[in-house]
Amino acid sequence: MEDLLAYIISRYNYWAAIILLLIGLYGMIAKNNLLKKVIGMTIFQAAIILFYVSIGDKRGATIPILAHGHDGAHQAVEAAAYANPLPHVLMLTAIVVGVSTLGVALAILQKIYRVHGTIEEDEILETIDQ
């Protein structure tokens, strides 16, 4: 029982990622203001990136840059001494895609404001019904 408890508590990064995912989902679904929905989406993306970067972390490792340069190319690389760089590279792409998504979302939001005069969801629905 205590082993299980220690196992669950020591993986607190995953719990933080789950909490951030739920906060972002709540913002996207329950908030009435469109800008807050967009902020919820960025929080959701940050939570997913946190989950992936947590997988690449290792205990007792250092940053994934080889300590010996091109002269020592014949030496074997000790993989346990470096954090796994594969999730980092994938999430680098995800951050850039996230910013372009944010830019398009905010452009559409400004167009909606220009047409409807508001960014509150219920007021936009009222103006559509008229």
Partner: peptide, 12 residues
Amino acid sequence: WTEMLAVDVAFT
């Protein structure tokens, strides 16, 4: 992310 050894992700 700097603290989790992902410096490239951190500066991006």
